[in-house]
Write a protein that binds this DNA or RNA. Structure first.
Length: 577
RNA sequence: GCGCCUGUAGCUCAAUUGGAUAGAGCGCUUGGCUACGGACCAGGAGGUUCUGGGUUCAACUCCUAGCAGGCGCGCCA
């Protein structure tokens, strides 16, 4: 039940009817009309700008027109206690108690669907996220995008869309070869006591490779590991598998489970790259040509050559993008083009990619390809998550792949925990860089907004324990005819805004609004709770049984919204803390 | 040089996709625990929303020109 949508429909209906009766003029497009949350100082529940939008067409001052519309609304609606005009022409509405009683009754009986956006058309989404190279466990840098993707998936599913979560495994190309070579050298180190070359920047120095090497030795007792070329194929495959094991373990610890893992190598092997290039060629999006040297400092040794290019400049990219390397093997981009064609062939309505900030420069070319292949500019949405700045002991902490000293997801979960990690990573818009202060999150965990929200839920559970009601049971309420105090109405207003929070988070793919909302709701609750300290009237458990029931319904609705929101962001709501 | 992101209170950030007197946390400061859980609450101080111009009933939000910071800019993935 979205009361803002409800009243928007109502108001549009009222002005449309009035225009038919020649009482007021309306323009063709009524999109500007909105029903919104009024500022707190007005003590009203909803507010509309309808008079301001229609004032031009009626050649009347907004405040004058507003008075006229107020009369129309009053005639139509019996649930309004007070309706008034505020400068420069807003119409503010305050509901009767009965409205809120009905509202609560509605959300308690339909608590599972409260917040779902019922207007939106159900779609099939493909969400690609993480897709980190399978060369080792995940580190903190991967975390933010991983959590963002997972929560977007939850959010879309919550709104009854179909979502497939996919991980693209880059198990082909030079990096994988270097990785496999590193594993080989670790194996030699173990079997033949040959020291691992520490100074080769192409190799992967991390200690986790030793474990991977050990596992592979265990599984290949007959192999001698005498010649890299001989074992390379098999070894690469097994090394990637070992890496994926680590990655899946990390993801599971974060509470993330993908539906599909798609292998780049498989796509290349199946000649899907050739297939898609043929398709693009037919439509003149691929040609043989030369590229200019890139305009950065390290482009001194640039050699111009003829090569296969995708015409991404047709779609607004800076330059056309190469599909083939000098040795005629495919570029990363080429196989990614094939992968995206593969996605398109699986008939999804919308494709979403979650990328780290360091890959943002890649967006234009890949959206261009999807547009070229599908003819639809909005088929692929790329969402960027900005960097996480790690801070330890008040100082920025730089991770270095060369030294192998980076913080893994495992370290993070062990130190901070899944819930705190998810809540903090989500608490900010993905467009801004995030400060992740280790020492703070660990030491001062009481200042963590996660606990503030969880504490709200735990307190509610504690009340229910006192009256011997299981909070998860279906609660039978006989009487819904309650009289609410202003402080309680403030909580009800906040609850009524939950569907809006979901709607905006979903349409903009911005889940950070959810933790923000939950914090605000929890704040309303804690504030009310503390009023019961001085004044028994405000306590939830009361000698007057009817009064207690009224409060318990209110509490229950808060707990339902908190739980629902925490479910979406994938964080627990313990009943005791 | 070009592209993307950011610029809001001392610090870290919100702001319902253009609304009314721009809000929180931390920090500073004054107060509140014999309680339905103090992991909490109430109050105070703190603002030229980076700058200039434009669009309109209305701009933190949109357009434009700048300034500052971050990220990226082979045939690496």
């Amino acid at each position: 039940m979205n009361i803002f949508d409800l009243y928007l429909e109502k108001i549009i209906k009222i002005v449309t009817l009035a225009s038919k009766a020649k009482e007021i003029e309306i323009p063709e497009n009524l999109n500007g009309i909105k029903v919104d949350v009024p500022p707190v100082q007005f003590d009203c529940d909803i507010s509309t700008n309808v008079a301001m939008v229609l004032s031009k067409a009626n050649k009347k001052a907004p405040s004058v027109l507003a008075e006229q519309i107020i009369e129309l609304i009053k005639k139509d609606d019996k649930e309004i206690e007070n309706i008034s005009v505020a400068n420069p022409g807003f119409i503010n509405i305050k509901f009767k108690n009965s409205f809120w009683s009905n509202f609560l009754k509605n959300i308690i009986t339909n608590n599972k669907s409260f917040g779902i956006n019922k207007k939106s058309i159900k779609k099939k989404y493909l969400l690609e996220f993480v897709s980190a190279n399978p060369t080792g466990p995940l580190h903190v840098g991967h975390c933010r995008g991983a959590i963002l993707g997972d929560v977007l998936s939850n959010l879309l599913s919550f709104n009854n869309h179909t979502v497939t979560k996919e991980y693209y495994v880059n198990d082909d190309g030079n990096q994988i070869l270097h990785f496999s070579k590193s594993v080989y050298l670790r194996i030699r180190e173990i079997l033949k006591k040959e020291p691992f070359p520490k100074d080769n920047p192409d190799l992967y120095p991390g200690d986790y490779l030793i474990n991977i090497a050990k596992n592979i030795i265990k599984n290949n007792k007959n192999s001698k590991f005498d010649n890299f070329e001989e074992v390379s194929n098999n070894l690469t495959k097994q090394s990637v598998e070992e890496s994926l094991k680590l990655i899946k373990f990390n993801l599971k610890n974060l509470g993330i489970i993908h539906d599909n893992f798609i292998s780049e190598e498989e796509i290349v092997k199946k000649k899907e790259v050739e297939k898609v290039i043929k398709k693009l060629k037919k439509n003149n999006f691929v040609y043989e040509g030369k590229l200019n040297a890139p305009k950065n400092e390290k482009s001194t040794d640039w050699k111009e050559r003829n090569q296969l290019l995708f015409k991404s400049t047709d779609f607004g990219d800076d330059k056309d993008r190469p599909l083939q390397k000098a040795d005629k093997s495919w570029t990363y981009f080429a196989s990614d083009v094939a992968y995206h064609n593969n996605k398109l062939e699986r008939n999804y309505d919308v494709l979403i990619n979650i990328l780290g900030a360091d890959h943002a420069g890649y967006i234009k070319r890949i959206t261009s390809v999807v547009e070229a292949l599908s003819g639809n500019k909005n088929k692929l949405i790329c969402k960027v998550s900005q960097l996480v700045k790690l801070i330890k002991d008040g100082k920025p902490f730089k991770m270095s792949k060369r030294k192998g000293d980076y913080i893994t997801v495992e370290d993070l979960i062990n130190e901070v925990g899944k819930d705190a990690t998810r809540f903090i990573m989500l608490n900010r818009s993905s467009d801004v860089e995030l400060d992740f202060d280790f020492t703070k999150v660990k030491e001062k965990s009481k200042d963590n907004p996660l606990y503030y929200v969880q504490y709200c839920y735990a307190r509610i559970c504690s009340v229910f324990r006192h009256v011997n009601i299981n909070i998860n049971d279906k609660v039978n309420i006989k009487n819904f005819d309650f009289k609410y105090k202003l402080e309680e109405i403030k909580i009800l207003r906040k609850i009524s805004q939950w569907p809006q929070c979901i709607e905006i988070s979903t349409s903009k793919l911005e889940p950070h609004r959810i933790p923000t909302y939950l914090y605000e709701l929890a704040s309303e609750f804690h504030s009310f709770w503390n009023m019961g300290r001085d004044n028994e009237e405000f306590r939830f458990i009361n000698k007057d049984k009817n009064l207690s029931e009224e409060k318990l319904v209110l509490l229950l609705s808060i707990s339902k919204v908190i739980k629902s929101g925490m479910n979406i962001i994938g964080v627990n709501t313990p009943e005791k803390m």
